[in-house]
């Protein structure tokens, strides 16, 4: 992927993310996140991962964020985001900024003089084989995980009380 294109998409994603996490309106935040995810999908495509790029759009942007919006819409009254006084934020913000700076510094510390990534593209068919032939047990496990997440979500989200046991 071209370095300039990479940083154009990357910059867009970062900007959208910063806007996302600072919104008071949750719907706006989710929409900014949608933008960021789309930009990241483009980067994934550029890094030789067409199938993850497509799934990034379909699942992250298409399903997960829609789920967020859906839950937001269900809440009555909609959650009020209380304004926070700046002084409450200073210390957590300092800590978070410190972490970000430390992490970036650690990544930067080793860079310099590296070559670009090789042009590697993993076609969807190859990914599918790797996923379902080699990592099949992981797929099975994750399918159970999804199932039980659904069971749990169903239980927690149900409105009525559980039926009583018959003696």
């Amino acid at each position: 992927m071209n370095l300039v294109a990479f940083w154009i998409f990357g910059g867009t994603a970062l900007l959208a993310l910063v806007l996302c996490v600072t919104r008071r309106n949750a719907v706006h935040a989710v929409l900014y996140l949608l933008g960021a995810f789309l930009a990241i999908a483009a980067i994934l495509f550029g890094l030789g991962a067409p199938l993850p790029a497509a799934w990034q759009v379909l699942v992250y942007a298409g399903a997960i964020l829609v789920l967020f919006l859906f839950v937001l819409m269900t809440l009555h009254p909609p959650p009020a985001m209380k304004p926070r006084r700046a002084r409450e934020l200073v210390l957590p913000a300092l800590v978070a900024a410190g972490n970000l700076a430390g992490a970036l510094a650690l990544v930067l510390a080793g860079s310099g003089g590296r070559e670009g990534l090789p042009g590697y593209v993993l076609p969807p068919a190859a990914l599918g084989r790797a996923l379902f032939a080699d990592a099949w047990i992981g797929v099975e496990a994750v399918s159970f995980l999804l199932l039980f997440a659904a069971v749990g979500a169903f239980w927690l989200g149900r409105r009525e009380d559980p039926p009583k046991e018959r003696p």
Binding site: A141, V142, L145, F148, A149, A153, W155, L156
Partner: peptide, 13 residues
């Protein structure tokens, strides 16, 4: 990661 997420998720519920 799969193992960790599995039981953590179950425990949340």
């Amino acid at each position: 990661v799969i193992g960790l997420s599995s039981f953590t998720l179950a425990l949340y519920v």
